[in-house]
Structures are given as structure tokens and as C-alpha cells.
Design a binder for these strands. Structure first.
Length: 816
RNA sequence: GCCGGGAUGGCGGAACUGGUAGACGCGCUGGAUUCAAAAUCCAGUUUCCGAAAGGAAGUGGGGGUUCGAUUCCCCCUCCCGGCACCA
């Protein structure tokens, strides 16, 4: 008796079964091969968006597929619960961030369950809970003792009206988003983690990470930006402090015609004291936000300081400039400028009338005019005194030797990577476990006083952190000397929480240690899936933290994520879906209308995971239609009663064709899901198979048995993507064992065998015919049959055949 | 600006290792069913020429390598992501 497809009934039935059998709650089974499948955990914004649905479905498909391969699969879920949106909501609606966050988590957990993800909810981690963040506070104090954290001044965006520090995204066209005031760069003391201490290891290990996309590895390599060069010092006329610069082009040293320092550089500040124009210029430089993209794209401005450096080789005076494009936080905050052989220096020199000197000539001896165009290639030294005639390598060596012998410089390795600033002047984050004492300076909070608990019952105004106004939080006694002291009110960057949560899923309930032996069982993550937007920061910080935890003796693992899948954005109208742009699509409405399986299916079908997915409301309907066809096909088949076993000896041609299609599809989808992660083509292949099934009209016993096998294959092959309908249809096909415990189907090689295949015939590379030949036809036979084709004859008739290319099983190309 | 990625019918995409461009789906067109509509089913659907057979062009633009290029190389355009305080 056929029933119509009702997704709510089917899906709640499957979900109740999974919950009742607790099939996704896993312990540590050393007998089985483990598979740790993880998705970047979400920020609990309150509502699931399409980007979430996409990434969580991708991961769930992989987890369910691996389970069917017999692996012991862990797939946990948790909440990246600290962050700015909670504070913004608090400012807007007066709800404390904690309350807002916990309510959002409850809502989103419900949505996740409705989507049928195979999560072990017993391991849920919430980063704003003290039982979680106490361990990163603890690790920070350990890092403090090792010198892996330190405090220094660094630049923030200062809103002079709201008297508060702004995030880069809160600065719009150089103005504060709420006050509209011009934002200023301001230096304040902040805590840093010494990620640069691991720069070489983080860089070198990338060469041994075959499971990561090349694009991400390249981005990380470029981000770390290791470069070999020379660090050299210039004396400054009338100043005792020499100026140190780093260059990767010491061969161009004789071409230095000016030098530039950052606005925050001590020399600039010194010059400003006696020169109001310079002072005004520096003030002007500070009226910009602190983002690097802004620095790089803004107009390059500079002003001479009226101070000269002494060229270390020629002894000439070289004018010093202050420039808005030199970053204090990068390198030494000073650069030597070689306008003849550096693009940016050339443009700056042209604009400001600084002389341009050619010191490199093209290696092939050709002439260039350095006033007309910059020459940045490596070549032969000219106008460089005793170094004239040397090539790049020899010149670098000679000049580096000169500096090292004279003690004025050294060969050095420079990194673009900077230490990680983790201080945030915000309330809703992990309190940095430091106490400031007038006598003992900054003292880490002792282990027995952890965690430093963030008070949750607060009012947020948007003007500075409420923690500063809480004497019961701030006033403490110094752990070292006992005198009155003040607690740090800054909190951690939320990237700190997301840098180790993947390990904590293994042992979220341990209140004695950060990680235990269960982490040793589950880590590293076998498959990590998340947005490409995290290619650098989150993934690099996590790799860094994993090493810090390793060196603390918490784990033996160095790399946290063995295989990485970076999924593209979900776009609408060509832009990232976001509340700001008002171009969101609510998954909840679609789930209510069509069910979770339709939404999951459409997400997997619309594009391959790595590509950006342009959302379109059309097409969801098509996925729903397909599931209805799928449902009806199984129902009408089972209406005919049970089907017998297949007897391969009695199958006719059409029955063999369907069997071949079934097993070809099993092979293709196994490859698509297991190796290629191209779920879109897996869905397409299963649609093709169902189309073949629906065209196959054969009610004989043999026909029904072949059809039964084909339908079972579709159910199993689609089950990672649409697990609910598959659960129901598997039972409908007469099985007592629940689908979740059934292994992935295997290919019957014998069913794939074919007698005749089609081969394409080209003449001069253009398609002119198709021939049907035996599978094992040799090259000569193929060529002969191809020549005999009627249409091919028209194109080769009367012409000389110069060459015949035969690709067995594929094509014949006749060149005339 | 720098780093990474992308561009294929009306739309989303397929073509995996240089070998049939457009699988699969959406949309659209025509037909069946219906009192009618929805739903469903069948057929067609890159463009141009042609009644058809067939032919020509065609994978963002320009050039190159090759018997053969969506695929490899060079140059360019536009779009997306990241740029260290959005997560």
C-alpha cells in the first residue's frame, strides 16, 4: 500500500531512532580505526544561516560515509561563544551577553537536531563556560613562564568620541560606526603570543601536509613570509642611536637615495619636537585606521625630517623621511629606499622629486633609462664602486661580508609573520589571567586561583569595558607579595578559544587537566572542514597552539588537522550572505516547507564544496521533486511484493544494462564521496541511476530482482546526503537492520563487463563520426573501422592521410 | 596595493591524467492528464545556417605549445576570499 512522501514524519522517525539508539555517542574503541570528523564550530548568532548548513552537511556526509566504511567516527559540535555580536546585541537591546548567547545556543542546537546531523552531543563544548576557558587561562600562565607571551605597545583604532577601541570592521571609511568620529591610531600596551618562535616549524611542516589544499599552504607560506637578507645599520647625523633596516636586496645598497621611517618611529617623534610641519604630518598619519589594507591602498605620503643618515659605504648623507606607508609593527619600522630598483620607492621618488640612481644593469647588457621605468630584476652592479660588475649572488655575499666584518650588520632571516596580539579591550571574552602589582609588575594568576571567572550579570554601554567599572573584579591582592593590586581587564582575542577546541572535544568533562588520554586517542582531526575565509588566521593559530600544547607535554601531535577541506561561501546576488547586506535566506523556512533532506540534497547538489555557491531559490523545488520520485519509485516497487535474489546466468540484455549501470554508479559515487569530495556529481550520478530505474519496465522475476538491487544501491549511496528518507526506504525495502548499521555497497566487477563500446572518430581534430567496436579491438582494427565510416569518408576522400592517432577505448584522429 | 581563488548555454553546474564541450538539475517551449488549475508524466532546449542529413562558431579577452586545449604556458579584464580587532 503506497503512501505519499511526508518529510516531517519520515525525518522525525529517523531522528527518534538515532536518539534512542544513541548511535552517534562514541567512546574510545582501540579495536577499530578511528576517524575524527570535524567542522569549524559556529558562532552562536541565534539563527542558522545557509553557510552553516553547507559546511555542516559536507562534514556530516563525510562522517556518515566513513562510518559506512567501518570506521569508528567521532563528529562533535560546540559553540565559539565569545565575541563582539553579543556585546552589540547587549548595547542595542540591553540583554546581558551571556543570556543572549545561551538563548542563541539553545535555539541553534534545536535547528541542528532538526537537520539530522550525526553529532555526539555528549561532548558539546561552549567556550564562554569557565570549565572551558580555565584551561586556556592555565596554558597562558604556562606560556608566560616560558617567555612565550610578553607585553608591548601596539596600535589600535581609537574612537575619540566614544572613548573606546574599535575593531577594524567597526571602522567605516575611517570613521567610528556609532559616533561617526574620525578614528585615530593609538598605541597601548597589549599582550602578545610569540608565534614567531614557531615560524620556521610552521613553514617547513607545510611541505609535509599532503592532506591540505595547495592554495591554503601557499597562502600560509606567503603569510609567514620568510626571507633571507641582511640587517644593516646606518648612523644618523647628530644622533647616537643608529638606524637599523632589513633588506633582501643588499646588492642595491649603493642606490639608496633616501630612507623612510614610520610615523610612530622615535626619530620621527624627535624631529616633530622641533618642526611643527613634521608634527602636523605625523598627527595626520595617525588619523587613519590600523588595517593593513588601508595602509597599502591609501595615497603614499611622506615628508623630509631634516635629518640625515650616513651611507655606510659611501659616507654620503642620505635624507630621512617619515612616510605613512611604513609600518612600525613590521620589522624595525624603518626602510632604506632604492628608487631605481623598487616599484614603490620609484613612484615615491618621482612624486617627491627625490633623485633616482641606477646601480643595477640588465644582465644581457641592454640599456635602460631609470628615469623612465623602474628596473626591479636582478642584474649586474654598476655605479657601485668596488662592487661594479658583480652579479646578484656575488654582490649580496660581498656586501653582507663587508657589514659582518665591520660589525655594522649581519645576515638575517626576516619574517612577515608578526607575533599574535591577543589583548582585546572588550568585555565578552576570556579574562586574561594577569594581576598588576606596583612592586611585582605583571604577575600571572596562580594555578589554584584559576579560573578567573568573567562576571555574567553586567550592563554593556558600548563605551569601554564594563569590567573596568567593577571594583569587585579589578581589586585583588598580589599573588606574589600580597599587596593591593589590580586585575587585567582586557580579554583574549576569540581566536584563542578556537585554537584548541578541537582537542578538548575528546575530553570536555575533565576538570583536572586540559587534555587527557582520550585526546591521544582521537587527535589529530582526520577531516577538518570549514570556510576558506579561515585559510590563514584560525588555521595558523591552531597549528601554533597545537605545538604549544605539545611542548607543554599535553600531546605528541604537532599538526592538528590531517586533511583539510575548505568550502566556498554561500553567495546571494554575488555577495556573501550577511545580515548587514540583507541578502540572507533562512534555512528554517525551507526545512519547514520541504524537510531537512531536501535542503541537504540541494546544498550538496548545487556546487562542489570548494567553490562559491551562488544561492538561488529555484532548484530547491527540484531537489524535493527528486526525493518524491525516489520515494514513489521504491513504493511502487515494494507494492509488487518481495523480490528474489539475482541469478546472473539468466539475465537478458536490458537487465544486464541496468545491473551495469547500478555497479558503475556504485563505483563512481564511492570515488566522488570517498576521494574527490564532489558531492554534486555523486547526486547527479544517483539521479541518473534512478532515471534508468524508472525507464526500466520489466515485471519478470529477474527484472524485479535487478530493480531491487538498483533501488537498494540508490538508498545506500544517497544515505550520507539524505539520511532520513534513506532510513525509511531501507526499511521499506524489507530490511530489519537499521540503515545506520549497514556498510557501504561494493562493486561487482563482473557486472561492469561490456562487449561493445563507442569510439569517436575525428578528422583533423574535428568530430566526424562514431563507431561501435569490440571492447578489446586493437589499434589497426580501430583505424580501419574509423576509415570505413560513411561521414568520415567524406572528409578524407581524395586526401593524403598524414597521420592516424588511435587512443584505444577513446578516439581515432585522422590527420589529412 | 599584496597574497590566494574563480569566469563554461537563459541559470547552477559536468567534462577527474591534454582526447566526444554542455552530464545532472533549474528554467523555458510543446504535448498528455484535468471541467479548470496545481501536481505528475512524455518530448524538445548552446548559438547560427539547413526541411533533414549535415555544416559553421563556441568554455571572460588576446597570444602560444599540440594531431588535438575548458584542461598546459604568457599577457590582460572582471568577480570573490584574506590582509593580523568580524568570526
Amino acid at each position: 500500500m503506497s503512501t505519499a512522501y511526508h518529510p516531517e514524519t519520515v525525518e522525525s522517525g529517523a531522528q527518534e531512532y538515532w536518539a534512542r539508539s544513541r548511535c552517534f555517542e562514541v567512546g574510545e574503541d582501540t579495536e577499530k580505526e578511528k576517524f575524527y570528523c570535524l567542522t569549524m564550530f559556529p558562532y552562536p548568532s541565534g539563527k542558522l544561516h545557509m553557510g552553516h548548513v553547507r559546511v555542516f552537511t559536507i562534514s556530516d556526509v563525510i562522517a556518515r560515509y566513513q562510518r559506512m566504511q567501518g570506521k569508528h567516527v567521532l563528529q562533535p559540535m560546540g559553540w565559539d561563544a565569545f565575541g563582539m555580536p553579543a556585546e552589540n546585541a547587549a548595547i542595542k537591546r540591553g540583554v546581558p551577553p551571556a543570556k543572549w548567547t545561551y538563548e542563541n545556543i539553545a535555539d541553534m542546537r534545536g535547528q541542528f537536531k532538526r537537520l539530522g546531523y550525526a553529532y555526539d552531543w555528549s561532548r558539546e563544548v561552549t567556550t564562554c563556560r569557565p570549565e572551558y576557558y580555565r584551561w586556556e587561562q592555565w596554558l597562558f600562565t604556562r606560556m608566560f613562564k616560558k617567555g612565550l607571551v610578553y607585553r608591548k605597545n601596539s596600535v589600535v583604532n581609537w574612537d575619540p568620541v566614544d572613548q573606546t577601541v574599535l575593531a577594524n570592521e567597526q571602522v567605516i571609511d575611517g570613521r567610528g560606526w556609532r559616533s561617526d568620529a574620525l578614528v585615530e591610531r593609538r598605541e597601548i600596551p597589549q599582550w602578545f603570543m610569540r608565534i614567531t618562535a614557531y615560524a620556521d616549524e610552521l613553514l617547513d611542516e607545510l611541505d609535509r601536509m599532503p592532506g591540505w589544499p595547495d592554495s591554503v599552504k601557499t597562502m600560509q607560506r606567503n603569510w609567514i613570509g620568510r626571507s633571507q637578507g641582511v640587517e644593516l645599520t646606518f648612523d644618523v647625523a647628530g644622533d647616537n642611536e643608529p638606524l637599523t633596516v632589513f633588506t633582501t636586496r643588499p646588492d642595491t645598497l649603493l642606490g639608496v637615495t633616501y630612507m623612510a621611517v614610520a610615523a610612530e618611529h622615535p626619530l620621527a617623534e624627535k624631529a616633530a619636537a622641533g618642526n611643527p610641519d613634521v608634527a602636523a604630518f605625523i598627527e595626520d598619519c595617525k588619523k587613519t585606521d590600523a588595517a593593513e589594507a588601508t595602509m597599502e591602498t591609501m595615497e603614499k605620503k611622506g615628508m623630509p625630517l631634516g635629518i640625515s643618515a650616513i651611507h655606510p659605504i659611501t659616507g654620503d648623507e642620505v635624507p630621512l623621511w617619515v612616510a605613512n606607508f611604513v609600518l612600525m609593527s613590521y620589522g624595525t619600522g624603518a626602510v632604506m629606499a632604492v628608487p631605481g630598483h623598487d616599484e614603490r620607492d620609484w613612484e615615491f621618488a618621482k612624486k617627491h622629486g627625490v633623485p633616482i640612481k641606477q646601480v643595477i644593469a640588465p644582465a644581457d647588457g641592454s640599456d635602460i633609462d631609470i628615469e623612465e621605468a623602474v628596473f626591479t630584476e636582478k642584474g649586474v652592479l654598476v655605479n657601485s664602486g668596488e662592487y661594479d660588475g658583480l652579479n646578484y649572488d656575488d654582490a649580496c655575499e660581498a656586501i653582507a661580508d663587508f657589514f659582518e666584518k665591520s660589525g655594522r650588520g649581519r645576515r638575517a632571516i626576516n619574517y612577515r609573520l608578526r607575533d599574535w596580539g591577543v589583548s582585546r579591550q572588550r568585555y565578552w571574552g576570556t579574562p586574561i589571567p594577569i594581576i598588576y602589582c606596583d612592586d611585582c609588575d605583571a604577575v600571572p594568576v596562580p594555578e589554584d586561583q584559576l579560573p578567573v571567572i568573567l562576571p555574567e550579570d553586567v550592563e554593556v554601554s558600548g563605551k569601554g569595558s564594563p569590567l573596568r567599572d567593577m571594583p569587585e573584579f579589578v581589586n585583588v591582592s598580589c599573588p606574589q607579595c600580597g599587596k593591593d593590586a589590580r586585575r587585567e581587564t582586557d580579554t583574549f582575542d576569540t581566536f584563542v578559544e578556537s585554537s584548541w577546541y578541537f582537542a578538548r572535544y575528546a575530553c570536555p568533562d575533565n576538570d583536572q587537566v586540559m587534555l587527557d588520554e582520550r585526546a591521544a586517542y582521537w587527535t589529530p582531526v582526520d577531516q577538518y572542514t570549514g570556510g576558506i575565509e579561515h585559510a590563514i588566521l584560525h588555521l595558523l593559530y591552531s597549528r601554533f597552539f597545537q605545538r604549544v600544547m605539545r611542548d607543554e607535554g599535553l600531546t605528541d601531535i604537532s599538526e592538528p588537522f590531517t586533511n583539510l577541506l575548505t568550502q566556498g561561501m554561500v553567495l546571494k546576488d554575488g555577495a556573501k550572505m550577511s545580515k548587514n547586506k540583507g541578502n540572507t535566506v533562512d534555512p528554517q523556512e525551507l526545512i519547514e516547507k520541504f524537510g531537512a533532506d531536501t535542503v541537504r540534497l540541494f546544498m550538496m547538489f548545487a556546487a562542489p564544496p570548494e567553490q562559491a555557491l551562488e544561492w538561488s531559490d529555484d532548484g530547491v523545488q527540484g531537489s524535493f521533486r527528486f526525493l518524491k520520485r525516489f520515494w514513489n519509485a521504491v513504493q511502487s516497487h515494494t507494492d509488487g511484493g518481495p523480490a528474489g535474489d539475482i541469478d546472473v546466468a539468466v539475465l537478458n540484455a536490458a537487465q544486464k544494462d541496468l545491473r551495469r549501470k547500478t555497479h558503475q554508479t556504485i563505483a563512481k559515487i564511492s570515488d566522488d564521496i570517498g576521494r574527490r569530495y564532489t558531492f554534486n556529481t555523486a547526486v547527479a550520478a544517483s539521479m541518473e541511476l534512478l532515471n534508468s530505474i524508472n525507464r526500466f519496465e520489466d515485471d519478470s522475476d529477474a527484472g524485479r530482482s535487478v530493480k531491487h538491487e538498483a533501488l537498494e544501491a540508490v538508498v545506500l549511496l544517497l544515505s550520507p546526503i539524505v539520511p532520513h528518507i534513506s532510513h525509511a526506504l531501507w526499511a521499506e525495502l524489507g530490511h530489519k537492520t537499521a540503515l545506520i548499521d549497514v556498510p557501504w555497497p561494493s562493486v561487482d566487477e563482473a557486472a561492469l563487463a561490456e562487449d561493445l563500446i563507442e569510439v569517436v572518430v575525428q578528422v583533423n581534430g574535428k568530430l566526424r563520426g562514431r563507431i561501435s567496436v569490440a571492447v578489446d579491438a586493437d589499434k589497426d582494427t580501430l583505424a580501419a573501422v574509423a576509415m570505413a565510416d560513411e561521414n568520415v569518408q567524406r572528409f578524407i576522400d581524395g586526401k593524403e592521410i598524414r597521420k592516424t592517432i588511435v587512443v584505444p577505448g577513446r578516439l581515432v584522429n585522422i590527420v589529412v
